[in-house]
Computed example of a mutant assay.
Amino acid sequence: MRVLVAEDHRVLARTIATGLRRQAMAVDLAVSGDEAERMCLLTEYDVLVLDRDLPVMTGDEVCRRLRELTDPPRILMLTAAGEITDKVYGLTTLGADDYLAKPFDFAELVARIRTLGRRVPKSPPAALRHEGITLDRARHEVSVEGRPLELTPKEFAVLRLLMEAQGVAVPHDELVRTLWDENLDPRTSVVRAVVSRLRRKLGDPGLITADKGQGYRLCD
């Protein structure tokens, strides 16, 4: 899942980004409203975590403008304005998809972002299956021949993307763009390292193949 955090309090923004990345989300940061709007026009984000009190362009205006797009990101307003009237205004008048007041519990923020990320017009089945592997997207659980498998959040995200591709090669650049943030050097070996660990945990080194010039895919 790709998330943009629009927050001008830099320490808080970095803290949120670090926590979300540990949950296998690709996170970019914007420190002003105009920057947030520009980044949303250039990149397809699943969720925008939006502070209402942003410089240059307020979060309220960003929300209004993004709602004019054909396929805007889901917008979670994260703000100190926590009165009921503020929440109603944000959800109804501005058109935000969710609203969370500061201070907040980080586990709740993660849960709300994941819920927004699952809100698509036609939800695919929660469970994916391939060669004895079952991946439950809703519960974030993986099993091999019925045996539970412990994966890191990033390993889970890579396996999910490969299983969703149904045997079609997923390019290295797409893995980087979807599961990591814009600061990761696409030439890095971090993707290969995650795939290597995933192969070992699945117990079949040949299950994930690297097609030269094409990317990674699951073999039958």
Rank of each mutant, 00 (worst) to 15 (best):
V5P: 02
D8I: 03
G19Y: 08
R22D: 12
A30V: 05
G33E: 03
D34S: 15
A36W: 00
E37W: 15
C40L: 06
L41F: 12
Y45Q: 04
G59K: 08
D60E: 15
R65H: 14
L69F: 08
D71G: 03
A80P: 08
I84H: 11
V88K: 01
L91N: 02
T93H: 12
D97P: 10
D98T: 05
A101L: 10
D105R: 15
D105G: 11
F106H: 10
T115Q: 13
P121Q: 08
K122P: 02
A126N: 10
A126R: 10
H130T: 09
H130E: 10
D136I: 01
A138D: 15
S143F: 04
L151H: 06
T152R: 13
K154G: 04
E155R: 12
L161C: 13
E164C: 07
E164A: 07
A169M: 00
H172M: 12
E174M: 10
V176G: 05
L179E: 06
D181Y: 11
R192E: 13
A193F: 15
S196T: 15
R200Y: 08
R200G: 03
D204F: 06
P205V: 05
P205T: 03
L207C: 06
L207M: 14
I208L: 14
G213Q: 09
Q214W: 10
Q214V: 10
C219F: 06
